Simulated scan of single mutants.
Amino acid sequence: MVEKDPTSPVSPLAQFPPLPPTESRSRAPEFYGFVAWTSTYLLFCVYVLWALLPDEYIIGLGVTWYPNREWAILLPAYSMVLVLLTYFTYFALALAATPPFSDISTITDSRAHLPPITGLNSYFDHARPNAVPEMYDIPIGLVNRVIYGSRRNHAGKETP
């Protein structure tokens, strides 16, 4: 019997039981993740102790200088303002980059495939019963005219 690779073109299904993992992969991400997790919890515990313990206990631990306690309130407040300012900035940049409704780029782009400029006849040429039409993007003005009818000016007359 010829053994096949676990995912060969002849047998696209994985082999069962699965092959044991190779030992060539690095375990460094696991260690980095553990160090990041433990250091985050350690720093949070130090922060809470600094914010809540009386001065006598902190000095009793041998710490001679530490920041003023008002920073225990100011740092989270400033960080929340920074997060909100970041969201506001990204929203404002997205809004500033959005073209106005009157801009043609809200309707079409540079990749639009429009028929040759011969008027609307090029669309009607492809409307014959047995015609295989070439693929074109339909201008928004023609779509609006078909869906909503002709425009009316202020005098009540139809315009083409």
Rank of each mutant, 00 (worst) to 15 (best):
Y66T: 04
A94D: 13
I147C: 03
Y47T: 06
E158R: 14
I58E: 03
V132C: 04
V132P: 03
A72M: 06
I117Q: 13
V63C: 13
M80E: 07
P67E: 10
L52Y: 13
L93R: 13
S122E: 12
I147V: 14
S11Q: 11
H113R: 07
S105T: 15
S11K: 08
W65P: 01
G119W: 01
G62E: 05
D137V: 00
W50L: 09
T98S: 14
F34W: 14
T108Q: 15
I140Q: 11
N68F: 05
T7P: 00
F44C: 03
V10N: 14
T7A: 11
P6W: 04
I58H: 01
E30D: 10
N153Y: 04
F88K: 09
P20N: 02
S110L: 13
R151G: 07
R27H: 12
T7K: 12
L74E: 14
P9Y: 10
T22R: 11
A155G: 01
M135P: 03
N130C: 10
P100K: 10
P133W: 00
Y41I: 01
S39G: 06
G156L: 00
D55P: 01
P99W: 00
A77R: 10
A96E: 03
E23L: 11
L13Y: 15
E56C: 03
L84S: 13
